[in-house]
């Protein structure tokens, strides 16, 4: 019947509105469950998730050695030309020429933090760091050199 449907309609509408208001009212009264991070104030205690992708870095051990062989797999994998690898040829003690990395150029201003370079790296030389405060005053400062000066290839990495 029409009138029964009408009353049912109104009743159902009021009930669903009250359910919604109950939910928001719960949040309003339970102020402790705040999910906001008060960012600049909590710099010391800020914990970022492990898989957060901030920027590409190259790990160096205590002997200033890294695992990058200069294969440029990352350069090929990068979708927007962020990475540029400049190679040199080392002369080994046996007198053999050996390809090695000279400069690992990383353009942070072009990077979209997709992480494809890290996946492409055969020797796990680069990885994504957690840092995210990248603001600088000059765009030139965003072009970075990832391998430290005078760093060498780790022994045993081919």
């Amino acid at each position: 019947m029409f009138i029964v449907d009408y009353v049912k309609d109104v009743y159902g509408a009021m009930k669903s509105l009250l359910v919604g208001m109950n939910r928001t009212g719960y949040y309003f009264t339970h102020h402790k469950e705040i999910i906001t991070e008060e960012y600049p104030d909590n710099r010391e205690t800020l914990i970022l998730p492990e898989r957060f992708r901030g920027e590409v870095v190259m790990a160096h051990d205590e002997n200033n050695e890294h695992a990058c062989t200069g294969c440029s797999a990352c350069e090929l994998a990068c979708p927007n030309g962020t990475i540029k690898i400049i190679n040199k040829f080392d002369i080994s003690p046996e007198g053999k020429k050996k390809k090695a990395i000279d400069t690992f150029v990383y353009h942070l201003e072009l990077c979209t933090m997709c992480g494809l370079c890290v996946e492409a790296c055969p020797t796990a030389a680069i990885n994504m760091a957690n840092t995210f405060e990248h603001s600088v005053f000059n765009r030139g400062q965003l072009t970075k050199r990832l391998n430290k000066p005078d760093s060498k290839l780790k022994a045993g990495v081919e």
Binding site: T24, Y27, F28, H31, E33, I34, I35, T36, E38
Partner: peptide, 13 residues
């Protein structure tokens, strides 16, 4: 403030 508290935020602070 009410909007922030309902949305589990802090609001202007």
């Amino acid at each position: 403030k009410v909007a922030a508290w309902i949305q589990i935020r802090l609001g202007p602070n």
